[in-house]
Design a protein around this nucleic acid. Structure first.
Lengths: 74, 74
DNA sequence: ACAAATTCGGGTAATTTGGGGC
DNA sequence: TTTGTCCAAATTACCCGAATTT
């Protein structure tokens, strides 16, 4: 992905990430991220054009699980 | 004035958002919001100078409609 | 009236989508 | 079962100069 310029944050809004950005964080193909969304493993917001956006907080939480090698059982 | 500065609402008028503010909510380019308006996917109002403004209630409703959460009981 | 930021337009790259098959 | 890749079509991002907004 070409490093798209990050939008300056605005009023306590939820920061959203593109499929390419999430894919880069997990080191997977963007399509894999799409599959996670389709499978309901991660929440997503659609643009009116159909493109997906992901909540940064949710993505960070998933990343933390992988980093700590946690085995669910919440 | 930066995009984050906004006048508080005074009367019962509908709050209007700029293309940049709507773009931030969906994490897209402001020009993309313009295309949505041109394509009729979202309603818009024009200033006398030709700049577009969007109804906040309509934008919020659209955002909520296109949101897919994971663990969310409606 | 001046300055800074934003939003016009158009055009051209880059990304995303969905399906299908390995 | 999960992931990566190929494909065509659709959507979005970045470029410019000029006009508008605040």
């Amino acid at each position: 992905m070409t490093a798209t310029t990050q939008q300056p944050r605005q009023n306590g809004q939820e920061q959203l990430l593109t499929p390419g950005e999430v894919a880069a964080l997990f080191r997977v193909d963007p399509k894999t991220v799409t599959r996670w969304a389709t499978a309901g493993r991660i929440g997503s917001i659609r643009t009116p054009g159909g493109h997906r956006r992901f909540r940064e907080s949710e993505v960070r939480a998933l990343l933390a699980e992988l980093t700590n090698d946690v085995n669910r059982a919440i």
